[in-house]
Design a binder for these strands. Structure first.
Lengths: 331, 331
DNA sequence: AACAATTCTGATAACGATTACATTTTGAGT
DNA sequence: ACTCAAAATGTAATCGTTATCAGAATTGTT
């Protein structure tokens, strides 16, 4: 690979001059600039980003930590991040932790070493790791989740209120025995959504049966498994609130297998509003999260952080309940 | 951030010694090693990867180019890549091009500059860009697709044979008017699958009606749109071969909307065997691709390339038809 | 033609690590 | 104690850039 020196020699100038045209910060005559450009093209020269970044002490690069790459929810948030990064000439890279603590640790220390300008984590768990490891100081924002000690800026929706609205929708339809398919209790997100579920019940003076809430792991299969259990163990349940569309879809299959018709015998509401929910049979009633915007604002916040501007510590975006055909008045 | 010099000073040794314990390549007494380790811990030192890589001239890093991050097919392939990378102490990063030529170009030149050790592209289009730009020389392999001039190693399945098998399955069930939901004709993958479709028909002496083939863009929506068109324009069609599960699922909604029962009135077979296909209603008959293995072998091939070992230029893995409930004997 | 002000350009010191080579220290064997 | 090889350490060059500073070339003004 050609280096800047090769170009300099080829163009008959010093490497400083080549660097100047590379950075095009003026102060170089049109003639030599042209000559240098020509040499660059002829030699197929590409500046070495490593060397440049080492010298400049910043990378114009951010990394996004994603807990599980196969969830399209995260992909959409990522797209928002990416598009915003692009307009600010930052480059976004993705790391996938597979929900694996080991992997997270590995990546985090790798990222610190990589001298990235900033990190957006879509997992509060990973973020906790960072802080324990005292690599704070590296600009970082959390998207979709948040740290309970509020130590890092975050952008998300109000999950408690949203979940409450979803469950209230079921209550308004006359359902009284409502199951809850939650995610891992270690995750704030699912704790909040569970809280919303409980509050909605409380507001309608419905006694809580903790047997109605089941904890899955956000996969289709666990939506199916937990959904099956729920219906088998509590046949009186007529509706379910799933704290994620993926689990909702899994549970719909479980209901069908038990001969329940959706929505007549079993109403289901999801959470997230993934693309696929419009193509289910029946289309899923769910909470819409502005995924793209969450990504976009996360990136904006990160940029503020990088540039040392003051930032809002918590940014809550708008959600909304989208009623489709998977919920109907209780018979 | 503490540098190696800080550690050296703190431990009362030279930076060379610190480097030696960092690389733990022996030749340093247990006593000083311990002292250095202690200083490292105390100062919270992390080696600067940029500097290290600049000096060592390799990064232990590979990048994976993904055309669209929201397709779970790619995620699964990526997981295979990642797991294999991990055991070889390589770090895999992801870049998403959103099927956008501009983005691809941007990323590619960025990657060259980043001095990565290698690239795995899940898009032949991106790979073509690389070659035009004469940044060959950078180890690179293509997964799932291939370049028609055979200039880069690739690992995939035999898409022609697989598509042919899928369509033959429909023919064996007695279907004669079979639609084809293809992807962009610019993509070898879809051209191959279309070829498979045509060959199956030819083998059964069924005249081809090119009106039966429609070109979508691999989204749920386009599966729906093209599927609707197909059924509206050619109501005599009783089965469809979709060159991707995502489009298959979209088209199922279109069929339902027109009052067709699946599979009785309309049989559909997909391609890929995404997780979601098991949770559709009805579960989708499809071609299973060994996504994880494709990823794994791609990474192995890339490593061989990096280490200068001889590599197999084309590796075809096994696929298989999985018959579920979306296909049934033609009435 | 002389001079100052301006614009270009080149030498060189960083950035933070690794490593070849030189040097010192250690320790075993006598 | 002395020698000598082996082990441990230090010095300094290097990776490919950018940025500071100083010097050279150009321009404009009188």
């Amino acid at each position: 690979m050609a280096t800047i020196k090769d170009v300099a020699r080829h163009a008959g100038v010093s490497s400083a001059t080549v660097s100047r045209v590379l950075m095009n910060q003026g102060n170089v005559s049109a003639k030599t600039a042209a000559a240098v450009q020509k040499s660059i093209a002829q030699l197929g020269y590409h500046p070495n980003a490593l060397a440049r970044q080492l010298r400049r002490q910043h990378t114009q690069t951010i990394y996004v930590i994603i807990p599980s790459i196969d969830n399209t929810f995260f992909s959409e948030v990522y797209r928002g991040i990416e598009s915003e990064a692009l307009v600010h000439h930052y480059q976004a890279f993705l790391v996938n932790t597979n929900n694996d603590k080991n992997q997270e640790n590995l990546f985090l220390s790798a990222l610190v070493q990589k001298q990235t300008d900033g990190i957006i984590s879509l997992s509060a768990a990973a973020a906790t790791g960072v802080i324990e490891r005292q690599v704070a100081g590296l600009p970082m924002v959390i998207a979709c989740q948040y740290l309970e000690d509020g130590s890092l800026p975050n952008v998300a929706i109000d999950n408690i209120a949203a979940a409450k609205e979803a469950v209230t929708h079921l209550l308004d339809l006359g359902h009284r025995n409502i199951g809850c398919l939650s995610g891992p209790a270690t995750n704030v997100l699912y704790r909040d959504r569970l809280t919303g579920y409980l509050r909605a019940l409380a507001e309608h003076d419905i006694p809580v049966n903790m047997g109605y809430v089941s904890y899955g792991n956000s996969t289709l299969q666990s939506g199916y498994d937990r959904g099956l259990e729920l219906l088998l163990g509590h046949p009186e349940i007529t509706a379910v609130f799933a704290a994620g569309d993926v689990m909702a879809i899994g549970s719909m299959k479980a209901a069908r297998r038990l001969g329940r018709r959706i929505p007549q015998d079993y109403a289901v509401v999801g959470f997230d509003d993934l693309d696929i929910t419009r193509f289910c049979d029946p289309p899923l009633t769910t909470i819409h999260q502005p995924m793209f915007e969450i990504g976009k604002y996360s990136m904006q916040t990160l940029l503020d952080l990088i540039e040392g501007k003051p930032t809002q510590n918590q940014r809550l975006l708008e959600y909304r309940l989208i009623v489709r055909e998977s919920t109907v008045e209780h018979a």
